[in-house]
Design a protein around this nucleic acid. Structure first.
Lengths: 224, 224
DNA sequence: CGAGTACTTGAGACGCCTCAAAAAGGGTGG
DNA sequence: CCACCCTTTTTGAGGCGTCTCAAGTACTCG
């Protein structure tokens, strides 16, 4: 068996086939809205997201939540636990999802022996890193509208990679609270910005889906 | 020759001795305030910071700048270019600094053959990643005072690792413009917050150095 | 000692937040 | 299929934190 890490990153398209099939230990189905990994916990398994949406987040002791990233089908959920014993974030499902589980220790052992595998997995972490560089720049130096427009554009591009976009419409299971926690704002303000984008006919909503109505102008709104 | 990556990260102390001495190609001295790597450029070398301070940053086309991280002695400057050909950020020196240069291609080749090396370097990237998770959380969910207090505390802890702290005083070559660009604020506001911290006798300034006068209360100000 | 760079301070504006309440969806069971 | 409840979104009014602009002060280095 051969699994493909098809993950779109802000910086470049990646398509690295990594052969870790022999270490599969099982499959797991998780209902929507479940926190299935918690920050600080040790993790014994390595999980690949086969289907559904999830998000990684950190919780401050006083309840403030920061969403670090969104995981889409094809991505490893907790890649970096191959190098550290404890989770640095929690993970929650947005939709029902399916995970493929691997034997973490066997993977670690094989990395030590197989330079090519270790290199490929290292490359995946390096890409994650570059995505974080972009997110940090967005949070630190972009306005609320720019951040939201970019989030939509990035999700659109990533979903296209997984063939989950029809026309310019794609499933959108995020609540405005999620967007707020991902982009460092309040749900109230997210609502206002979304209203503006909708009023300007740049985006539209149909049920649980989102449509990009005017790609060019949305790009302009997303800023330099 | 044996080089030590002694880098403090928000999450845990690290001390991994990585044996890459055989690939040294030279040493380079760079004066203060020079942008010596530029986003988008290909990099042929792998550089380790021996002495001095530098910072990594991204520039938006309209001039907005986001400082991604600060590099202190002992750290690789552009670790992730072992996996990608082009720089995802620029790097500028704060003080005069000294770099040790390595043969990038030889390192890459050796990683493919030597799983242990690839694994160790992967671990270093994974740590960088976790540091970015914390920075993102700070930017997204913390107030200006909390961010500044944490920056001071983190620098203090990292410098202690390099034995660059005397008492509770350490060299501080950052201008307020740098702090602003690192923490997503304006230099004017940085100045106001610094004034408050100084007025409250939590920190003090002597020449190019910064002193933590009341560690406990600074920790409180840094938030939960 | 002069010139440039960094820092400070003040006044006013704006973006985003808070609190609060109403409206709109979205499931569920009768 | 409707009535209900719960969650999510929308809307309004007012406030706070941070920004902008601008002028003045303090460094630093030749």
């Amino acid at each position: 068996m051969r699994l493909s890490f098809m993950s779109w990153r802000d910086y470049f398209d990646g398509d690295t086939a990594i052969d870790i099939g022999r270490h599969v230990t099982g499959t797991r189905t998780i209902p929507a809205r479940r926190t299935f990994y918690r920050e600080g916990e040790p993790v014994a398994e390595f999980a690949l997201l086969l289907e559904g949406w999830a998000f990684r987040f950190k919780l401050l002791p006083d309840g403030r939540r920061q969403i670090l990233s969104i995981a889409l089908p094809g991505e490893p959920i907790t890649l970096h636990t191959l190098w550290t014993d404890r989770l640095s974030f929690s993970v929650q499902s947005l939709t029902e999802l399916q995970l493929r589980l691997f034997d973490r220790q066997a993977l670690i052992d094989r990395m030590q022996a197989d330079g090519t595998l270790a290199f490929q997995l290292g490359e995946a972490v390096a890409r994650e890193l570059m995505a974080f560089e972009n997110r940090l720049t967005n949070l630190g130096r972009r306005t609320a509208v720019e951040r939201i427009a970019r989030l939509i554009l990035v999700l659109h591009a990533r979903l296209k990679q997984c063939d989950l976009v029809e026309g310019e419409t794609f499933p959108f299971p995020l609540r405005q609270q999620h967007i707020a926690d991902a982009l460092g704002m309040t749900p109230v303000h997210v609502s206002r910005v979304f209203s503006e984008l909708r009023a300007a006919r740049l985006i539209g909503r149909v049920g649980g889906s989102l449509a990009i109505l005017d790609y060019t102008r949305l790009l302009e709104v997303a800023g330099p």
